[in-house]
């Protein structure tokens, strides 16, 4: 086990050495990979930022609860408590029927008509701001509230949520397609790098075969190299995104100041960054594996 570990560390270190023994071509390789990955990853970061902005600042979904006309004070206290305890409810504001009528008078200018009414036709109501923003979860919440006693009608305005979701879905799909295409590019770049390496190391491979090296032993350094190149390419992509966001943010602040708003672009979460590195390392490994399985068997000792 210890020998096995030492072996792998050695192979990794020699891959690292090989990588830095041709610094310029290695640099260009990771730049190509980095740029290819930074396009979809950068678009994803932008999309996430837009999503955040839309959910937090532009509008949040609102649910109106209209109570029955015969609701008692006790019922209202109960509903109040239930709403406050509910996990999905962020804020709930009670609007008494008198206040609602008053507002109606002021906003519509129908004072005379309303004044002529014998009694207040409006019910007591709650304006609920949910913590969730997902359309289907909101619908579930609506149905749940509907079933509470003394609640006559629940109104949920889903229009903008659905629009936003559709736009985000569209954006995500575009990013997915782009990622797949550029992921192939990464695999292709690694495939070619490893192919060249196999050709230049033909003699070493041949000799190793002759003195009893297993295929796994011969494959290993190439796979590590592909992994390393992918990993560094991913790191380059992350670096490119960070620099771009930094530059955009300094310009963005001038823009938001004019609108007296406060908004900055945020870096992707640690999970997303790790996922990027992991994915690019995997793709590099895959490119190397394809290349090795395509080219290595052709080198047979003679």
């Amino acid at each position: 086990m210890k020998n096995w570990l030492i072996l792998h560390v050695h192979v990794f270190l020699s891959a690292l050495r090989k990588f830095f023994s041709t610094p310029l071509s290695s640099l260009f390789n990771i730049l190509v990979i980095g740029i290819a990955l930074s396009l979809p990853a950068g678009m994803y970061v932008m999309l996430k930022n837009i999503q955040n902005l839309a959910e937090q600042k532009i509008a949040s979904p609102q649910i109106s609860l209209f109570l029955s006309m015969d609701t008692s004070k006790d019922d209202i206290t109960r509903i109040d408590r239930q709403l406050k305890q509910h996990a999905a409810v962020g804020q709930a504001r009670f609007v008494p029927r008198e206040q609602a009528l008053e507002q109606l008078k002021q906003t519509t200018g129908l004072e005379d008509v309303i004044g002529g009414l014998e009694h207040n036709p409006l019910p007591d109501a709650y304006i609920v701001h949910p913590k969730i923003s997902d359309a289907s979860a909101l619908k579930t919440l609506k149905h749940e509230l509907q079933r509470w006693p003394k609640i006559e009608h629940v109104q949920l305005d889903l229009d903008w949520v659905q629009k936003l979701e559709a736009i985000l879905k569209f954006g995500l799909m575009a990013i997915l397609i782009l990622s797949m295409l550029l992921g192939f590019a990464l695999v292709a770049v690694t495939f070619n790098t490893i192919r060249l390496q196999i050709l230049t190391q033909r003699e070493e491979i041949e000799v190793s075969r002759l003195i009893g090296a297993t295929s796994a032993f011969i494959r290993r350094p190439f796979l590590y190299f592909g992994l390393l190149q992918g990993l560094l390419g991913g790191a380059a992509a992350w670096f490119i995104i960070s620099i771009s966001l930094y530059m955009l943010n300094s310009n963005l602040s001038q823009l938001t100041d004019l609108y007296s708003a406060n908004f900055t672009l945020h870096l992707p979460s640690t999970e997303d960054q790790l996922a990027l590195l992991l994915l690019s390392a995997c793709l590099g490994w895959m490119g190397a594996w394809l290349s090795v399985s395509q080219h290595l068997w052709k080198i047979e000792p003679r």
Partner: peptide
């Protein structure tokens, strides 16, 4: 090299 191959 032969010893490396045998994981020596």
């Amino acid at each position: 090299l032969p010893l490396k191959i045998c994981d020596f």
